[in-house]
Nucleic acid binder design. Sequence first.
RNA 1: GCCUCCUUAGUUAAAUGGAUAUAAUAAACCCCUCCUAAGGGUUAGUUGUGGGUUCGAUUCCCGCAGGGGGUGCCA
Length: 562
Amino acid sequence: MSYIVKEVQAQLRNAVLAAVKKAAENGEIQTVPEKDFIVEKPADSANGDFSTNAAMAWARELRMAPVKIADVIIKNIDLGSTYFEKCECAGPGFLNFYLSAGYYAAILKDVKSKGEKYGHSDYGTGKKALVEFVSANPTGPMHVGNARGGAMGDCLAEVLSWAGYETEREFYINDGGNQIEKFGLSLDIRYRQLYEDGIEMPEDSYHGQDIIDHAKAFAQIHGDKYISLSEQERRKALVDYALPLNIAGLERDLLKYKIKYDTWFKESTLHSSGAARQVVADLTEKGFTYEQDGAVWFKAEQFGCDKDFVLVRSNGLLTYIVPDIAYHYNKLCIRKFDLAVDILGADHHGYVPRLKAALQALGVDPDKLKVVLMQMVRLVKDGEVIKASKRSGKAITLVTLLEEVPIDAARFFFNMREANSHCDFDLDLAVEQSSKNPVYYCQYAHARICSIFKKLSSEGIELKADADKHLEMLTEEPEKDIIRHIASLTGEIETAAAQLDPSRLTKYTVELATLFHKFYNACRVNCDDENLTQARLYLCSCVRDVLKNVLALLKISAPESM
RNA sequence: GCCUCCUUAGUUAAAUGGAUAUAAUAAACCCCUCCUAAGGGUUAGUUGUGGGUUCGAUUCCCGCAGGGGGUGCCA
């Protein structure tokens, strides 16, 4: 399943190559150049629909001025069997190619024939991808960082799926290790505080209200009968009570955010199955560990890390990275995903090379694991940054955020920036219902088209079945600009998938809305020429379909009226 | 110290190594007898600094300055 833009670029490339071959045979150039060249879409459409740097790239090899090479290519090129109607030399030696009206019509017909599938590609067909995201600690509520990770991960999974991958979403539940210890400790103290005075919460425990609520609810059910039991039994009972509630809460809150996971993977299963300990055994067997100060270390320096690190602490407990290694081994080797994507906070960046080093030592291709690091989110309100302190339990939670901001806006905003850039989330802007707010701007474009159809329908004008006969009448620049942008969607999906960057899709959507609004002001749909009206209605219908498709990808609603 | 991300218009952000560095927003002005003005148009304004690679650098490499994050037998 190729798509038109790709075909067109291949046509251009082949035509250029055929032209230099012919020129070399004629003796107009010394040899057939070999250096690779680029076919691209110029930023400014005044420079053609596609351009190539071939003449410039070959300047050295052919010992000719780029402009002269370009002239030779133009003289010898045959565009007869392509979508192009002409080719010009411009600037320092660019070859600019212009598409024929037939191309624009073909793009629109393609949108109609593919329908909801328009934008899909076979880029990743036959490959299995797993996107792990959020994976918040089940010891408390999710925060705004999780909100960003959720929106990004979910959209990225959707992008991969559109790009042809067989994609699954996964949440990794950290229900083992120190976090759970701390959770049990905190619950225990809050529980005992209900019956005894003078018990203080340690600095290093969870101080949130949710812990107090759990302890109270537990006490309502069981009363004080756990007070007399051992601390260990009491903590276990408390954790067994509260943890499933928290996990169910995470699932519920994420569903509100329109995120549904295929699997919830528990860390504890890696301990109970022995998979975690097996990692240490395997690495030891391969000779990649040593003992020092009573601890077991992994020889990470051999695999490009700056320092070795501990796998088994001197107290016999595993460090956090061991179950993580087992987990990723499970993803890549047991469940055989071709691509495993982790969305992590930037504070984990030091950990990524270590994880990859260990996987490599176990014989796993570490390149199959791709980690998207997200920079921190700062919430801005009234032009000021809201300080969020996790330790005090006063961090703004995902649920609070969604109470203040529409879900559509949150999902859109968190996908506007690349993961790599810091994200300032402006709470005032997100709730503002105006042109300043890009979510409404995009949704309005969709609603506006629906409204045009309604209005014209009330005047007895409908889109006819044979409207596509008149598409070559769409020759105004605003019309062609839209069609060019529509044509680029599939490539955009592929690029987003390759770069693991869903923010390209929000940018795409804003641009499509902008182009439509410009068209709306420049060209009347309901005009004097009946055939042109049909062609423009067809165009509107395509824009509506594409907007609907990309908004669906982002899981943002496409209202018919606003 | 070491690792890493960032630095572009007053502000927030774009730009697979390409053409006159793009938008939004804030400012000024203009456009509804006509499909929702939740829209469009016009004007003005930007690559932190010093080198290098290149026909060409915002982009790649090295140094410097400034900011975020990391650098535990915590996760």
